[in-house]
Amino acid sequence: MPRAVAGPEIERLIQLLARLPGLGPRSARRVALHLIKKREALMAPLATALGDAIGKIVTCRTCGNVDVTDPCTVCTDPTRDARTLVVVADVGDLWALERAGVLNARYHVLGGVLSPLDGVGPDDLNIASLVTRVHDQEVSEVILALGATVDGQTTAHYLTDVLRDTGARVTRLAQGVPVGGELDYLDEGTLSAAIRARTQM
């Protein structure tokens, strides 16, 4: 069994960092060492920011976004098109679409996708509240911005059926060749989706 090379506080820091996505034990040790070397410039402000986040960050009861207000900044923005609702699996997807800056709509975070193998069914996601929002807010279009995975597509088909009687138009993001992508490097599924979603020049 390898011996500890640092005190329990540092070992605990490494163990906690290793739980973060994308960080294994080695990466966690490198990050911990970097934080320790930059205690005043980085570690202290990070500790303060984490403390603030614990006390102030809440989940928006309307859309499922995380913010410091409830309803969140997106839901209370009067310049957004309230008749267009973008459905995403997770908050990270919402942030990605916001960074792209191509939509000026409201969002609805499902909290995941349907996954029978993982035991995630319709009741485990924010689907009932989505249907309520589409009815109550007179939404005219629901954009399904879900991943191109099997679970993502299953969820999209399920939502299309659930929303069929709401009167809202249900669309989904186009899928296919990424900008700057070479055809030779793409998988068959991506190429097939790109051909089916082709548009007139």
Results as ranks from 00 to 15, higher is better:
168 A>W: 08
113 V>K: 09
125 L>K: 02
136 D>F: 05
24 G>H: 09
154 T>W: 01
148 A>N: 08
147 G>K: 07
114 L>F: 05
41 A>E: 14
144 L>T: 09
30 R>P: 02
81 D>L: 10
141 E>I: 12
68 V>C: 00
103 L>W: 13
118 D>V: 01
149 T>E: 03
152 G>V: 08
9 E>M: 09
168 A>Q: 10
198 R>I: 11
64 G>H: 13
107 Y>R: 03
129 S>W: 11
78 P>S: 11
50 L>K: 06
196 R>H: 09
115 S>G: 09
129 S>C: 03
131 V>M: 07
180 G>E: 10
14 I>E: 06
174 A>P: 09
176 G>R: 10
52 D>M: 06
47 A>C: 13
93 D>A: 06
84 T>D: 02
7 G>R: 07
41 A>D: 15
91 V>L: 11
57 I>E: 00
73 T>W: 03
3 R>E: 15
138 E>I: 12
177 V>T: 07
40 E>M: 03
8 P>S: 13
63 C>M: 12
36 I>T: 14
39 R>T: 14
62 T>I: 15
186 L>I: 15
164 R>F: 02
72 C>V: 02
134 V>E: 10
158 Y>V: 03
161 D>G: 01
157 H>G: 01
79 T>P: 03
186 L>E: 06
34 H>S: 10
53 A>V: 07
